[in-house]
Amino acid sequence: MSRRICIYFSWSRPQEIAAPLHVLDNRYPNLFEFRRAIWPFYEHASDPAPYKQDISGFLDHVILSDFRAFEKVVVSQTGYPVSLIQREGDTPPVKELDDALLADVDTLIVVSLDHFRTSQTASEGEVECIRSFLRRENACLIVCPHHDVGDSEKLDDRVIQHRHHGDGLVPGQQRIGGFAKSLLDQLGFPIENQWGLSPGRDAVGGPAQLLFDDDAMKASGILAGVRTFNLHPHLPHLWVPPQLSTKVSVLARQPINTMAPPHPFVIAGHRDFNAFLHIGPGDERAGHVFVCDATLWSSVFSGMESLSTLWANVANFGTKAAAFTKESRAGGRKASKPPK
C-alpha cells in the first residue's frame, strides 16, 4: 500500500518575513542579499515582479523550491503528491498539528526551520496528536531541526564558530529548530541540535562516506543503500542525553571537515557528529521516530544520488519497517555507540 507523506514547516512565516534587516542575527537573508552574495548564480530571480526581493522571496524561491526534487521522488514511488503545510502562513489561522490533518498521513516530516526567537513550540494538543499518530502500526515521524550557530553570547566564540563553517550567508548567530526541540522534549526525548559543523569531503570534493551502526541501520531499513548525505556548510550534532542511550540509536554519523578552521567540538576530540537518529517502537508507540537535519530533503548541496535513495526509502518505509517492528517488540535492540 502506497504511503502518504506530509511535510510540515513549523515556522511562523509572518515573523520570519518581518525580521528587521538592520539586525543581522537570527534571521534569513532577503532574496536580494542572497543574490548579491552568490552572484551570478541566482540571476534568474532578479525580476522583482515574479520574484519578491524580500525575505518572503528567499523562503519561497530558495528554501521551499529546494524541496521539489524530494516531492518528485515521492510521487514516482507512491503515486501521491507530498502535502506541504506551513504552521503559520501569510494569513491566519495557525495550522497546528491535529488528528484531522494527520488522518491520511503515514509519514510526517517536521521541518523545523523556525528561528528560536520566534518562539515556536508544540502545544499540548499537538503533542497528544503526535502520540496518537505514533500508536499506528508503522507510522513514521521524522523530526528535522537545523543548526544552532553562535549560541555563545561572547563575540570571540561566535567568530570561531563562523570561521569553521565559513558561510557568508549566515550571521554570527543563527539559532534554528525551536519547534523540533520543543516537540522532542515533550515526547520525552530531549535531543538537541548543537553547533553548525562543516561536513567532511571525499577525495574528489563530494560528501564523505557516512559512519554507520550496522546493526541499527539494517534493523530500521531507512538508510539501506545510503552512503552519504550532503555538503550543507553547517550541519548540527544531534546530542542524545545519556539517559536515552538505550532508547535512541545513532544510525549514522557524519565525518567533520578536517580542513576547516578549528571548532570547540573538534578541539574537544570529536571527528564526527551524530547525523541520523532512530527511536523504535516501545511503550505505547507502534510507530517510528527519526531525527535528522532539515536540509536532507533539499536538492542543492550535492550528494543527490545517495539522497535520492534515502528519499525513496522514506517513501516506501512501511514495508522496510515491518521486520524491525516485530523484532523490537520481541526483545528490544542494542544501543548504538556515541560519537568518538
Rank of each mutant, 00 (worst) to 15 (best):
A216V: 07
S299V: 01
A286E: 15
V62C: 05
G331D: 01
G188A: 07
A321M: 10
W11E: 15
S302K: 12
I222S: 03
R136K: 15
C6E: 13
E128A: 13
L21Q: 13
D54L: 00
E137K: 11
G172Q: 06
A321W: 03
L277T: 06
A260D: 04
L113F: 08
P14F: 01
S336D: 05
I85F: 01
C292M: 14
Q209I: 08
T309R: 09
F116E: 11
G225E: 05
A49R: 14
A252D: 09
R163L: 13
E284H: 08
H288C: 08
P338C: 04
A219I: 12
T295F: 03
P241A: 01
H263I: 03
R135H: 07
Q254L: 05
A18R: 04
Y28H: 09
D90H: 12
G166R: 13
A335R: 13
I142A: 02
E43S: 07
G150V: 06
P190W: 00
K340L: 12
F32C: 11
N316F: 01
D106M: 09
D98A: 02
G282W: 06
A252I: 08
L251F: 01
E128G: 08
L211Y: 02
A216G: 10
H162F: 00
L211M: 10
L101T: 02
L97C: 02
V111P: 05
K154N: 12
H146K: 15
M1H: 15
L155M: 13
D25R: 10
D283L: 10
L251S: 00
T107S: 00
P262N: 03
A268Y: 04
A122M: 07
L31S: 04
P281W: 01
H237C: 06
K181H: 12
D148Y: 11
P233C: 05
V204K: 12
A139N: 04
W11Y: 15
A268I: 09
P93N: 03
A252W: 04
K181G: 05
L210Y: 01
H232S: 11
D293Y: 10
G225A: 02
R227L: 09
S220K: 07
V143P: 08
A322R: 15
G172C: 09
F324Q: 07
H164N: 00
H61Q: 07
I55P: 11
K218M: 15
V94M: 08
Y8E: 06
T319F: 04
V289T: 13
L296K: 11
S112R: 04
A335K: 14
D98E: 07
H115A: 07
V314I: 15
S306R: 12
W195M: 07
T121S: 11
K337H: 15
A37D: 05
S328R: 15
Q161R: 11
N138H: 08
D202H: 12
S76P: 01
P145Q: 03
